[in-house]
Simulated scan of single mutants.
Amino acid sequence: MQAITPCLWFDDNLEEAMELYVKIFPDAAIGTVIRTGEGGPVLSGDWTMNGQTFRGINGGPMFAQFTEAISFSIDCEDQDEVDYYWENLAAGGEYSQCGWLKDRFGLSWQVVPRRLFELHADPNPARAAAAMQAMMGMQKLVVAELEAAADAAAPA
């Protein structure tokens, strides 16, 4: 059983958000949806993505502004996964720096290739620093460019 469940406060578009997230993530499903009256608007609901349960409420505009202080990080196997999540989550949202984006609901995501962590942990400090510097100049992270920067600093 999952001990902690993230709960996200939406203005009035929780149902739209749940539908988008379960469309994007391959192992995702909408669970319980509670409406205000029979056939009424959604009050709250839960969904799962990659085994993680999320809960959401339509609480109105008072606290419906997400900030980068909370984000969800996606550990991507390769560039194809980075591209997939970047394109699908950023649609209607906005790009940021270093692999961060906001989806159309304002929720922040970090779309990160595993290779970035390997490069940052490179035992050669010049390679690790070069990969970090390259990352700082990117919006969407591009594995080939990160590797090229590390290799230019000091061949593997």
Rank of each mutant, 00 (worst) to 15 (best):
F10H: 02
A64G: 01
F25M: 03
G106M: 05
T53Q: 11
L43T: 08
F25S: 04
D103E: 05
S96F: 12
Q97V: 08
M49Q: 11
A126G: 03
G51C: 03
G59D: 04
G60Y: 11
N124I: 08
W9C: 08
D27A: 14
W9N: 11
P123M: 08
Q139D: 09
P113Y: 03
V42P: 07
M135G: 12
A17T: 09
N58W: 05
M1N: 12
T5H: 10
A126S: 12
P123G: 04
T36K: 10
W86C: 10
E38D: 14
W86E: 05
L107D: 01
D78L: 10
D27P: 00
T53L: 10
N88S: 11
T36C: 00
K140W: 07
T48E: 11
E38W: 00
V42M: 09
A148C: 10
A153C: 13
A156V: 14
M132K: 14
A130W: 04
M18Q: 14
A121W: 08
D46H: 05
D103Q: 04
G92N: 09
G93P: 02
F105R: 04
E145Q: 14
M1C: 10
G31P: 09
Q139E: 11
E145Y: 01
R115Q: 12
G56S: 08
A148R: 10
R55V: 05
M138H: 08
L8E: 02
A69R: 10
P155A: 15
D75N: 13
A64M: 05
S73G: 12
I30D: 09
R114P: 00
A134K: 15
G93M: 01
R127H: 11
A90W: 01
I24W: 02
G56F: 03
R114W: 00
E19L: 13
D103P: 02
A152D: 13
Q133K: 15
G31I: 01
E68L: 07
A3L: 13
Y84N: 12
L101N: 11
Q110G: 04
A91E: 14
A154W: 14
I24V: 15
G39N: 04
D151Q: 14
G40H: 03
A149M: 13
L141E: 10
F105E: 03
L8K: 02
L146S: 06
G45H: 10
I30L: 08
G59A: 09
Q110N: 10
A90L: 09
Q97N: 07
P155W: 15
Y95P: 00
E68Y: 05
W109S: 06
Y21C: 06
G45I: 07
G39F: 02
W47R: 01
D103R: 12
A156G: 14
S44F: 07
G39M: 06
E87H: 13
E147C: 02
G51M: 01
S44M: 15
G40A: 06
W9S: 09
G45C: 05
E87F: 04
N13Y: 02
A149H: 15
S71H: 11
E38R: 07
L8D: 04
M1L: 12
C98W: 03
Y85A: 05
